[in-house]
């Protein structure tokens, strides 16, 4: 470890030490003390960093793409999401309870945590900044259509919007609608259409043309 940079294995944006603010310094102090007191080991910490790095929306996209091409898988995914994830080698066991919400032409789901920032991290990784923002947490429940509009998504008046406020141990993933004109696409190409935001439910999956980009 050098005096000016931390080389302890985190892969985020490295800040010169002298620029670190109060709380950033505080976590390095807390970390050092926890290691010295043997409350944690460096391996304990590194394990969590590695774990989170393996979690990304790409996992969710694989799940969704498989559900689009395989109706039996989709049925299993909705009935027992954790077991269906395991079929794809995606470990969802650390989730207490996992629920998949299927969008249709008539029903759109959107997920929020108004009280904190609950999110299906074992599947999608860490939540985006906007998901944790005060304005999203406030408006997702009272103005979901306005939020979707802001994200560029229009939803017709005949469609029922269902917002899920995850306040307990249940984690939700939206299964977006398969876009039209994607009949000829492979599962891999389909996965490219499944964005993180479409699995939170603020927008639909990308149009078919995006798979060829």
């Amino acid at each position: 470890m050098s005096d000016t940079h931390d080389k302890s294995g985190e892969h985020g944006h490295e800040h010169p030490r002298h620029e670190l603010g109060y709380y950033a310094r505080r976590i390095y102090a807390i970390r050092d003390l926890l290691l010295e007191k043997k409350v944690l080991t460096q391996e304990d910490i590194q394990e969590q960093i590695d774990y989170q790095e393996q979690r990304s929306p790409a996992n969710g996209a694989r799940i969704v793409a498989r559900a689009w091409v395989d109706p039996d898988f989709k049925a299993r995914l909705i009935k027992d999401p954790k077991a269906a994830c395991a079929e794809l080698g995606i470990d969802a066991t650390s989730l207490n309870e996992f629920v998949v919400l299927e969008n249709t032409d008539k029903v759109r789901h959107m997920v929020v945590c108004t009280l904190c920032s609950c999110y299906p991290r074992p599947i999608l990784g860490r939540p985006p900044d906007w998901y944790k923002s005060l304005n999203y947490r406030s408006r997702a429940v009272s103005d979901p259509r306005g939020v979707m509009r802001e994200f560029g998504q229009s939803v017709g008046p005949d469609v029922e919007v269902r917002v899920h406020d995850s306040t307990a141990d249940i984690r939700y993933l939206v299964l977006p609608i398969r876009p039209s004109g994607t009949e000829g696409l492979s599962e891999r190409q389909l996965a490219k259409l499944v964005t993180r935001d479409s699995m939170i439910g603020v927008v639909d999956a990308l149009p078919a043309s995006a798979a060829r980009a």
Partner: peptide, 16 residues
């Protein structure tokens, strides 16, 4: 993009 101290805070929290 998460900075090192944020990734560290996240990991220490999970590890605890």
């Amino acid at each position: 993009e998460l900075e090192d101290w944020e990734i560290l805070a996240d990991a220490v929290n999970q590890a605890l």
